[in-house]
């Protein structure tokens, strides 16, 4: 059943607050917590108002005194407006603040570029000590929130806005460990977040029908980056395709390319939002389709790359270059 990851977070953290008195939930008037939710959280919930830099500073101060604060804001405001407070007050001090960033990627939809976050993963994953996670569905979000209680250091979780479909047959993710959703030796498809991971799963099915076997990785954790699983999957493959709701620079595709370039050079195609601000009105599904972050695009990218390699006589790209 489709469910919003941000609501899965809220419902999970409400349960955890009751169990762990050291947890706090600090809000910046995001509206995720209704009056009833706030009442259920009791004095462990505080709405500090629309002030994201202050939100991060207060969270850091509380964390330095032994609290574990979950802070609620939108990805766009966390990753850019409040970035300096996250960098200096939270990451530099290695404090256990959990930044729960809703409206990640294109999830803000028609609300436009002021509310969309297509840079957050790139920005967050360069911060030393920051754990960066993109749960692909509601169940995964619950698992991540649960694991976050005892995770050392700071955590950034990119969440969505509207309900998104579940990833079929995906076990609960473990922070820091990529999920292998399918195994195949020809190509590797790597996604993070709801629609990209679904696109990889669907594309692998189509490719299999065409005789191309794909490994599908749900790379839900961008930092620490599970290069080991990626490299093992990429070794037999001729091509790695990444797909994400993010500008093409610096996000999942960047992380994959960095890891492979250093340890197991493999051709990487990075699918993402083109290098421009969104100028199309539409909800998340519409924008995902508009920017062609779809299974069809992944299939097309794989076919085009493999056909080109075959035509140039490079039946095995890696062997050719070794």
């Amino acid at each position: 059943m489709s469910r919003a990851t941000r609501e899965a977070y809220r419902d999970s953290v409400l349960v955890l607050l009751g169990r762990h008195p050291e947890l706090m939930c600090l809000d910046s008037d995001t509206g995720l917590f209704s009056a009833d939710h706030a009442a259920a959280a009791g004095d462990q919930y505080l709405n500090l108002g629309i002030a994201e830099q202050n939100l991060m500073g207060v969270a850091a101060g509380m964390a330095a005194c032994g609290r574990v604060p979950f802070v609620n804001t939108m990805a766009a405001f966390a990753a850019s407006r409040a970035l300096e407070a996250i960098k200096i007050d939270i990451a530099y001090n290695r404090l256990p603040v959990r930044i729960m960033a809703t409206h990640g990627g294109l999830a803000a939809g028609h609300l436009g570029p002021t509310h969309q976050a297509l840079e957050d993963l790139a920005v967050m994953r360069v911060l030393p000590g920051m754990t960066v996670v993109v749960p692909a569905d509601a169940a995964a979000t619950e698992a991540i929130v649960e694991q976050s209680v005892t995770l050392p250091g700071p955590l950034y979780v990119r969440l969505g806005r509207k309900p998104t479909p579940p990833i079929p047959a995906a076990p609960p993710p473990v922070i820091g460990k990529a999920q292998t959703l399918r195994t195949g030796g020809d190509v590797v498809l790597v996604g993070c977040g709801p629609y990209p991971v679904l696109a990889c799963v669907a594309a692998a099915q189509v490719l299999a029908e065409q005789g191309i076997e794909a490994t599908v990785l749900n790379m839900h954790t961008l930092r620490p980056f599970d290069a080991e699983t990626l490299i093992a999957a990429a070794r037999p493959a001729t091509l790695v395709v990444t797909i994400e709701e993010h500008w093409r620079a610096g996000g999942l595709g960047g992380a994959v390319a960095e890891a492979l370039a250093e340890a197991a050079p493999t051709r990487v195609l990075r699918l993402g939002v083109p290098d421009k601000f969104v100028d199309e009105v539409g909800n998340q599904e519409h924008l995902v389709a508009h920017y062609d972050l779809t299974a069809e695009r992944v299939v097309r990218a794989v076919r085009t790359a493999l056909d080109t390699t075959a035509r140039s006589g490079k039946t095995d790209w890696k062997e050719h270059h070794s």
């Binding site: 830099q53 207060v58 850091a60 101060g61």
Partner: peptide, 21 residues
């Protein structure tokens, strides 16, 4: 207690200390 230097950070951190206390 905590590093400072980029201006405008201390009072929010102080709020966090005071709240936690």
């Amino acid at each position: 207690e905590l590093p400072t230097g980029s201006l405008g950070h201390g009072l929010a951190l102080g709020c966090g200390f005071a709240l936690a206390n």
